[in-house]
């Protein structure tokens, strides 16, 4: 049985008429449920805001939370659950802040002699439930956003591209490489080549536990793309099992340079640049 606009009006009257008492009791009930993890003053402010926005929504707004009149109330509820989600409160602790209003309303009816019919009580609690659900949705969205952000940060952190010599950058890959991560690595490596003007890149896969066809393909594509841009890639740290996988899968590494360790790869590059330096000797004026 949904709350009607008339019922909503009665609730607004009730909230206005017993304003101070409602805010006081509501704050106390919420405070008890959160066991001092938020200060009373802060809680009181939040409750006051909720209380005011419910009154501002008016009878029609409370009857249907989706109408524009309830916009402020929806925003306040969303803000509240967002801040609870960020402060690591549980979903229950968040919803209880809203459900506390039920206790307060029942108390009003019992002790303060507010005129409430059974129908009113059922309708009011129905409204509070809907408000609770709204906070729940925002709560989940916020947490999902947090998780997505952290996953992205983790991705960034786990793929450092470092300059190890003049004109040489290295990517030490650690952990399982899935397609998404391989793609991020590829793009970051290529961008670093441009930013640092480095013609050599070493992809070290010592810390990669396994290589499947897809990952091998990504590494190969990175090497080819780097060549198109005018840079050379060396792959180092191929472990015995991975070498066996590569051969068993029939993946062609072609003429891509592979070295046992990062040190070997660096030595290889330095030898290459050494030879180049001698060739680059400007003797055309001779």
């Amino acid at each position: 049985m949904a709350l009607t606009a008339d019922g909503g009006n009665r609730l607004v009257e009730l909230l206005t008429g017993h304003g101070e008492r409602v805010v006081q009791r509501w704050t106390e009930v919420v405070a008890a449920s959160l066991r001092g993890r938020l200060s009373l003053a802060e809680l009181r402010l939040q409750v006051q805001e909720l209380h005011a926005s419910m009154i501002n929504a008016g009878g029609a707004g409370l009857a249907d939370l989706q109408v524009p009149a309830a916009g402020e109330l929806r925003a306040v509820l969303a803000d509240l659950s967002r801040s609870r989600a960020r402060q690591s409160f549980t979903a229950t602790e968040t919803a209880v802040s809203i459900y506390a209003l039920k206790d307060v309303l029942v108390e009003l009816a019992e002790t303060d002699g507010a005129e409430l019919s059974l129908r009113d009580v059922v309708d009011f609690t129905g409204l509070v439930d809907r408000m609770g659900l709204l906070t729940f949705e925002t709560y989940v969205q916020t947490r999902e956003g947090l998780i997505a952000d952290q996953a992205e940060q983790l991705l960034e952190l786990s793929t450092p591209v470092v300059k190890i010599w003049d004109g040489v950058v290295a990517v030490p890959l650690v952990g399982t490489l899935d397609s998404a991560r391989a793609q991020v690595v590829m793009e970051r490596l290529l961008q670093t080549l441009v930013d640092t003007g480095s013609p050599y890149a070493i992809i070290d896969i010592t810390g990669v536990p396994a290589v499947d066809t897809q990952v091998a393909q990504h590494i190969l594509k990175t090497v080819v793309a780097a060549r198109l841009m005018g840079a050379d890639c060396i792959i180092s740290g191929i472990r015995p099992q991975i070498a066996q996988t590569i051969v068993a899968l029939g993946i062609e590494f072609g003429d891509i340079a592979t070295k046992a360790s990062l040190a070997d790869a660096l030595r290889h590059v330095l030898r290459l640049t050494g030879v180049e330096a001698s060739r680059r000797h400007p003797r055309r004026e001779a």
Binding site: L190, Q191, L228, M229, G230
Partner: peptide, 12 residues
């Protein structure tokens, strides 16, 4: 000279 990374990836 100067091929962008996104262009190189696309060409591959």
């Amino acid at each position: 000279v100067g091929m962008r990374p996104a262009v190189a990836i696309t060409l591959v």
